[in-house]
Structure formats: C-alpha cells, structure tokens
Design a binder for these strands. Structure first.
Lengths: 242, 242
DNA sequence: GCGGGTCTGTACGCTGGCGTACATAGCGCG
DNA sequence: CGCGCTATGTACGCCAGCGTACAGACCCGC
C-alpha cells in the first residue's frame, strides 16, 4: 500500500481526506534528513513545515550554560513547525534530526493557506498539537521525579515506536544530550539494561532485544503519552484509498 | 476603565474585537474560585472554559505514587480548558485553584461555536496556546537543570505578575506541592530569600519586598517565558472601547 | 593492517535534594 | 484566653547524579 517514499508514511498526511491530500500532494517535497541537521534554530523564522516519514527529530531547549533538554520527539506520527499555524511564526525550541531518514516538507505559506480553510487539516493539526502538549507536560513531570534509567527506557521505547526495526543508530553521548544528563549516567544505565538482557549495544548502535523488559522498567510516563497519542490520533487510519 | 468584576480584567477577553465581545458577554458567568478548588480532574470531560480575572490556577500532573508537578500556571492572562478546542475534549492534567479569586466561565458548546467561526477568537486562543506550550517546555527544562531556590524565584515572580499586590497567600507546603519538591526544601530556600531581604513571610503569607533581588537570583526560565508571552500576546491591549 | 579519533568503561569525591523524625510557634476558634 | 491544629524550623543519614579524570576498546580510513 505505502511505498517506502510515499508521503503517506506520515500518519498525519495519511489521515487527510482525499480532497485535502490531492490539494497538497503536488507541493510535498521529499527531503533527506541527515543525522544532526538542525531544521529550526531557536527563535528562527519558519520557512517550511516537515512531515517526517523515516526520520526522527528531537525538539530541545538549550540553556544559557549550554546544557540541553529534549522536550519532545517527532517522528512519522507528527509534524514539525506547529508554531507556524499556532500564530507564533518562530519557535523557541530547536529541532535537530536525531535519527537520519526522510521526510516531506511543505512551504510555510501553502501550509497556512490550507490551515486557514479551517477544515479537516486544521482539526487534525490541532489534535496533534494537543498530543504534543501532553508529551511535553509528561516530560516535565518525568524530569522532576524519575530516575535516569527510567527515562532512558522511556526514550528508547518512544524512539522504537517510530522505527521500522529494533536497532537504533545512536551514541550514548547523543542520548545523554537529549535527556540532559551526563554521558556517564547513560553508560551506567545502559550497562545495566544490557546485563539484564533488555538491550545490546556496540559503538553507536543499540539493539532492543526484550521490549517487554524495557516496559517493565519504564515509568508510567511512557504509557501515558502513548495512550494520549492513540486516543487523539486513532482516527488517523481512516483513509483507505491510498 | 475596568471595574473589579468586569470580564475585561482577563486579557484574552479584553483583546477581543467588539463584535466578538458582545456576542460572548451575555454568556460569561462570574464565578468565585476558592483556594484548592479543582476545576478539572485529570481525564475529566470539560463542561466549561474559564477566564480567570483575579484567581490563579495551577495545571499539574499527579504521578502514580502521588507525587505532583506543576506544568504551568494560568491567571488573568489566559484561559483554562484549551483541550476543548484543541480537539481533545478531556485534559490529561489537573487544574487546581492556587490563589483564590474570581473568574468568568463559558459553557463548552458556546466556546466551540465561537471557535468554529475561525475568526479573531480562534486566532487569539491559538496564540495563547502557543505561549502555554512555551511555558510547559521551559518548565521541563527548568526541572532538569535548575536548583530549588531558582525555581522558587521563578514561581514567585510568575505568580506576582498575575497579582495586583505584592503579597501572596500561600503556605510552603502548597508551593512544594506545585514545584514537586519537599516542603523542607522550600523552607530552606525561602529562609535564605528572607535573610537576604527579598521576601518576608509569616504563616501562610509571603510578601515580596525586593523584586529585583528575586530577579537576580532566578534562572533564565522566567525571562524566557515572559518574553514569549509578551511577544505572542502583545496585541492584547488593542481594544480601547471598553 | 595499522594509526588516530571517537566512543565507552570505570573510578572518586562532592553536593543537592530526599525520607524521616521531631520540636517549636503562630493563628483561629471555641 | 487558652487549646489545638497546622505551619514552620531543624537535624541526620542517605543516595542519585554531577564534575572530573583517565584508560581501554572499537571502528574507519588510509
């Protein structure tokens, strides 16, 4: 049904009614999203919105002292650049490609045109934004109360949900940057998860061996976020004529 | 211009063009919001949205183990119940009155009617939502990286901005609950702020004596949030015919 | 196949915030 | 005016996570 490079790989695009899809499709431009690419810098103006298909992008805040913190991740379930249609024009966060892959982009003014029709596209985007708010909120609570190991599990599971395979290309250093903790903290937590057989890793590659093991160690935050995404975006599989 | 119990005390209401305001005004119902009242329980359906005038409401997540964490505060600059028009119907967070006062409420279906006109009201609400996302995001980063004292300063300043006076009615226990830290941690931080002459307190009352002192101790998060609110809602003073 | 850069493992002391426990003090209500 | 509740002060041990430092291991490219 969906070939590897169809916009329909993205759940939001796939959920559009046929009319909306056909209106937009000609303007969706396939782009490669290499690891580390910065799609939006904090405070920058948005030229495009992005619908990732295989890539995963991390939204993060950079503090004055250089420390960072991921506030949410966006994969093929979502869209990047919500502040465009929310009315902000700029984002206060930074968007960095966390897993290399592809996505489709759409020029900002075309996005706005479609949004301003106040039709299905608008409703879908607002629902997604609501889900994103949940993710950010849960991150805030999780940062306050849960251990590094629990947060690592959460992060791995959320990333896994957006990937086709069970292997992620990712150094401990990068993960530490996203979670806003020390690299050594990730080494320790990951070592522990490896001992218990949940994961295996080698230099920049992590393979998840026992997903249920991770699920038994993760804090409630993972399930809460997932539940809310499913609830808000369940009707996303509606369109069959793809 | 604005009498003590006018809906225009709320900045969002005050920013509405005359036509919108007159359409809504007859349906705005003044309600008292006593300390501790729960406006929305996590997962509950929304019957009303609220525009606080003098009250301040805290949005918080309650974890499974009973620990809590505030994700944002809402005062006379905002509205409660955004998930209604964002498409969620229910909120995953809980809304508790943090400072007693008043507000106006509007029935959910009337709010939706107005929102669905896709006019100024919708644009205003989306802008506000964008500002709220910033606040939540900054809270997430702040929870990760900053000390209890810094967070206390942030919280005091944000609360102060929403109050007419420089005295807040608030126990250390309650503040601790909002920030998701131990009560003793607040005692210590508040004691320190008192020693340096920034604040004075007695059993349930905190008076801010030296605002600039707080500002010199607070982390960047306060200024970031404030800046973004000002940027997004600056046009809120437009309507002069009040 | 070998070198160099990067990634990962380990160690050590430090400190902020936690859990627990209990003492004191202010305020409201009878 | 005094009782009792609730808010606040203080103390002690504990530990997760930090900052720093360095050693070893892996991989890629030449």
């Amino acid at each position: 049904m969906t070939d590897p490079h169809s916009p329909n790989q993205n759940h939001l695009v796939a959920a559009l009614p046929t009319a909306e899809f056909e209106r937009l499709a000609p303007h969706l431009e396939l782009v490669a999203m290499p690891l580390g690419e910065v799609l939006y810098e904090s405070g920058g103006k948005l030229q495009h919105v992005y619908f990732p298909t295989t890539a995963i992008v991390s939204l993060q805040y950079i503090m004055e002292n250089g420390a960072s913190a991921e506030i949410a991740g966006v994969g093929n379930e979502g869209i990047l650049g919500i502040s465009l249609f929310m009315g902000g024009e700029t984002t206060p966060s930074r968007a960095v490609v966390q897993t290399a892959g592809y996505g489709y982009r759409l020029k900002a003014h075309l996005m706005m045109q479609e949004f301003n029709r106040a039709g299905p596209m608008m409703r879908l985007l607002l629902r997604y934004t609501q889900a994103l708010i949940t993710q950010v909120s849960q991150t805030a609570a999780c940062n306050r109360h849960h251990s590094v190991e629990q947060q690592l599990c959460r992060w791995l599971l959320l990333t896994l949900d957006r990937l086709p395979s069970n292997e992620l290309t990712m150094t401990q250093e990068l993960i530490a940057g996203m979670l806003g903790v020390r690299r050594e903290g990730i080494t320790e937590a990951a070592g522990h998860l490896q001992q218990t057989g949940c994961i295996r890793y080698r230099r920049g590659h992590i393979t998840v061996l026992d997903r249920s093991g991770l699920e038994s160690r993760v804090c409630e935050c993972y399930a809460e976020v997932k539940k809310e995404f499913d609830r808000l975006l369940c009707d996303v599989q509606n369109r069959q004529d793809i």
